[in-house]
């Protein structure tokens, strides 16, 4: 099962890419598994400001499905 993971702002800079496709068969399909996998792979520290959107929606903590888009979002800075 594959999902698309997107990175933005300071996180994209740290990760060194803006997007990748990950196969969850080795990571686990739980939202938390993917989060921990990415934080540990790219040595991202979550200081409490990291937000994660699933299919452009914040606050979801459900198991992931094939084709989901998961986005790692640093603090917003519009305006």
């Amino acid at each position: 099962m594959k999902v698309t993971v997107r990175y933005f702002g300071a996180i994209a800079e740290k990760v060194g890419k803006t997007e990748e496709e990950l196969d969850l068969s080795t990571i686990g399909s739980d939202f938390q598994d993917l989060k921990e996998h990415c934080l540990s792979t790219y040595q991202i520290t979550d200081d409490g400001t990291l937000q994660i959107a699933i299919n452009q929606e914040l606050g979801l903590k459900r198991p992931l499905k094939e084709g989901d888009e998961v986005a790692f979002l640093p603090p917003f800075a519009g305006g």
Binding site: P74, F76, G78
Partner: peptide, 24 residues
């Protein structure tokens, strides 16, 4: 609402081309 809810990111670029990321 825009400042709080819209996923926009800002890279503050200094005169010497270094940068830091803006936080609202």
């Amino acid at each position: 609402e825009i400042k709080a809810k819209v996923p926009i990111f800002g890279k503050e670029v200094f005169e010497d081309e270094t940068h830091q990321w803006k936080v609202n």
